[in-house]
Amino acid sequence: MIDVRNIYKTFLVPHRVEALVDVSTAIAPGEVVVVIGPSGSGKSTFLRCLNRLEHADAGHILIDGIDVLDPKTDINKVRAEVGMVFQSFNLFPHKTVLQNVTLAQTVVRRRPKAEAHDRAMALLTKVGLPDKVNVYPDQLSGGQQQRVAIARALAMNPKVMLFDEPTSALDPEMIGEVLEVMKTLAREGMTMVVVTHEMGFAREVADRVIFMDAGAIVEVGTPEHFFKNPTHDRTKLFLSQIL
């Protein structure tokens, strides 16, 4: 599904940071991969490289066999197949909840209005917001906004969903409702890459956990391996700090 081979990314502005150093991994269809690590470890950069919101400096990223980093690749076609959910939701504030979910369907997928509308209604019902379709995002709570954002990404029928710290900007009492939606997705067999600090989610849902530090993958394993007997000292230190 996703094949990452030896990618590097260095930021020069505002100062030189080696965000990714020789990162390689493969993600199988239907797999849920959780990426954890301290701040600045490069986990968000890794996720954003997958749909080229950040352009990796070297290496190869193959999604369904298409090379994301090849200049000849139509990146918009790739992105239409890869849904993304952001930490700060990034809903379109000038559009209603329903329009947020239908916009890309009509513009990118060129679906007829009625079909886009039906798909949006079905997804908004699925995330538990069928009564909020005609309000504007600023009238919703953070948790509701994030659920709309998930529906917006799902509306494109993506093959993969990327989650970039989807619960970090939420008040504690709203984290649960968003994680619930994500768990449902995972159970339905969606391929997911999730950057998060929610260890409970990782333990319960993940097929595989990737621990990153200083731009490199330090340890990869199943949740049991990870939380019961991590091998690396850096992983042990991190887990002891957060658990």
Binding site: L53, N76, R79, G83, M84, F86, V107, V108
Partner: peptide, 9 residues
Amino acid sequence: EAARSLGMT
């Protein structure tokens, strides 16, 4: 980023 991540040009 949200617009581009949805595949918009």
